[in-house]
Simulated scan of single mutants.
Amino acid sequence: MRAPELDILVPTCDRPVELATTLAGLAAQRHPFGVVLSDQSRGRPSYDTPAARTMLRALRAAGHRVRVGQHLPRRGLAEHRAALLAHSRARYVLFLDDDVWLEPGTVGRLHEAIATLGCGLVGAAVQGLSYLDDVRPEELAPFERWTGRPEPERVEPGTPAWDRWTLHNAANPAHLARRHLRPGERWVPYKIAWVGGCVLYDRPVLEACGGFGFWSDLPPSHCGEDVLAQLRVLAEAGGAGILPSGACHLEAPTTVPDRTVEAMDVVGSAS
């Protein structure tokens, strides 16, 4: 089977129910892509359930190239992402968390956006739909569209650009879409600090920025590896979030309870 232009890379650990839901979202997409699924569960792999196996069969039956396996021992989130990236040769790679459901058309919008904008990354911020009635005007205030191609920018704590992190709290992406998506617009690019859960990279740019090779400088228990990688790509090639998001957070308990070590604090944001 010919390698696709876009691979979806899914790291998973101890989330059999959530993973099956994530795979169901992928099975409903019509854009061509491959799937690389890597499991680090403590016992039975999350993909080894009737529901997940059915969705994997559906993906293969639809013509998607699917690769599934376990990656042990566990050496931390960044190492897991680095290993996933090493298994892909696609031009674009979408890192998708195992607790995110994508509405139909999301993958196609992301690919269209990154190809059109010519930047290093495009993200669909995950929405917590249990917060739909919780409108937070002050958190939506930093919103700013990109007009034209996103420019490289260095996003650092203490800068106005860093304040954009509030855009992605709770159901804020859904509220932003209602406010800023105009009739006839398929998608809108906007300025970000970073995006969690669903990020499409131009793979050569990500690798030129070091990818997740900084994993060896981190202890196994850490977080923020995705933020660090994104900050480096933003500084080199620019990036954007897009509205509508189309990514729904399943709001499951975290599988990373120890969040005392931030990757950026140990490694630094410079590439």
Rank of each mutant, 00 (worst) to 15 (best):
12 T>I: 02
191 K>L: 06
254 T>A: 01
138 E>I: 04
152 P>F: 04
9 L>A: 13
31 H>F: 12
234 L>F: 09
29 Q>I: 02
7 D>M: 08
86 A>W: 02
230 Q>E: 13
85 L>E: 06
22 T>E: 04
266 V>P: 02
104 P>I: 10
10 V>Q: 01
26 L>W: 07
229 A>G: 07
132 L>K: 08
151 E>N: 08
104 P>C: 11
228 L>Q: 08
115 A>Q: 14
46 S>F: 08
52 A>I: 07
181 L>N: 07
18 E>P: 00
137 P>D: 10
111 H>L: 14
64 H>Q: 12
186 R>W: 03
167 L>F: 00
88 S>N: 01
210 G>W: 08
244 P>D: 07
60 R>T: 09
96 L>N: 09
154 R>W: 13
189 P>A: 04
112 E>S: 13
155 V>H: 06
145 R>N: 09
248 C>L: 15
107 V>W: 02
154 R>K: 15
70 Q>N: 13
202 D>A: 09
191 K>Q: 14
87 H>E: 14
122 V>Y: 05
151 E>Q: 15
32 P>C: 03
271 S>Y: 14
206 L>F: 04
252 A>T: 14
37 L>D: 00
167 L>T: 00
185 E>C: 08
147 T>E: 15
3 A>Q: 13
188 V>C: 13
115 A>K: 12
126 V>F: 08
172 N>L: 03
222 H>C: 09
186 R>V: 11
47 Y>H: 08
19 L>Q: 05
94 L>H: 06
14 D>Y: 05
55 M>A: 15
257 P>W: 09
168 H>N: 15
56 L>R: 05
188 V>M: 14
255 T>A: 11
255 T>F: 00
215 W>V: 11
197 G>P: 04
188 V>R: 12
111 H>E: 11
142 P>S: 03
156 E>M: 08
57 R>T: 05
79 E>W: 14
126 V>N: 12
232 R>K: 14
226 D>Y: 06
241 G>S: 10
109 R>K: 12
141 A>S: 07
61 A>F: 06
266 V>E: 07
14 D>R: 09
132 L>A: 13
138 E>D: 13
251 E>W: 08
113 A>S: 04
224 G>T: 05
69 G>Y: 00
22 T>C: 11
108 G>R: 13
171 A>M: 06
218 L>C: 07
29 Q>W: 02
237 A>T: 05
249 H>L: 09
93 V>L: 01
89 R>F: 10
112 E>V: 00
212 F>R: 09
110 L>E: 06
49 T>W: 01
33 F>C: 03
243 L>Y: 07
115 A>G: 14
19 L>S: 04
180 H>Q: 04
100 V>M: 00
107 V>S: 03
238 G>I: 04
87 H>S: 11
70 Q>C: 15
36 V>E: 01
101 W>I: 11
175 H>Y: 05
190 Y>W: 08
269 S>K: 10
238 G>W: 06
98 D>R: 10
48 D>N: 10
139 E>D: 13
266 V>I: 11
239 G>N: 04
71 H>N: 14
24 A>W: 03
118 G>H: 09
29 Q>V: 02
266 V>F: 04
